[in-house]
Amino acid sequence: MIEFEDVGHSYGERVVLTGVDLRLAERRVAFVGANGSGKSTLARMINGLVAPTSGRVLVDGLDPSRQGREVRRRVGFVFTNPDSQIVMPTAGEDVAFSLRRAGLPRRERAERAAALLAEYGLGGYADHPAHQLSGGQKQVLALCAVLALDPAVLVCDEPTTLLDLRNKRRFVELLGGLEQQVVLVTHDLDLLGGFDRVVVIDGGRVVADDEPEPALRHYRALVT
């Protein structure tokens, strides 16, 4: 359960979010909005990357800005640009990086990483330099590295923006098959087929919060 209680955020003078009240329990939730609407900032609050300047956020009753460590164990985050999210030189090492605190010997970490990569269609790529993967493969690797810790919640900040159509479809299919609660930030409305709930954000406020169809009708009216 992710709760926002009267959450606001501002960078100096500039107000990014005000008065956000949400309780998210659905399995598939989307934040939709234009560039600069504040949706990315809102998503970052879920695992404590950004702390609200007013109000509070709770993830399963934990406050991400105070109990960041516990929250980040439960909430995985996939960013837009896999090039900056992949932190280690090879695919296997990057997944193993996630497991660095699991208390496993080095070899076992490497084996687990390779098995996980295989599960997501990157079998045989463990020793492959990350920068030589295709854009789609990189984003799958980023997802894989996050799932290595088996989080309960997965937050994805426009994960398909840099992908071509085919890879976009593949990535969304992968997301759809996950058992995790997923919070997807996007302005790609085609992705929201199987979603339970869509929150439309505009000018730092929640302007619609509904099932996909009515919410997106509202969003389309907003942007045209």
């Binding site: 970052r44 990357l49 460590r69 980040r72 900056s84 999210q85 932190v87 605190r101 590295a145």
Partner: peptide
């Protein structure tokens, strides 16, 4: 910009959480 994004990615993956 890459450094900023990497910093966020590392933080999201628990780096600095001790």
């Amino acid at each position: 910009r890459h450094a900023d994004e990497l910093g966020e990615a590392l933080a999201a993956r628990g780096e600095g959480d001790g």
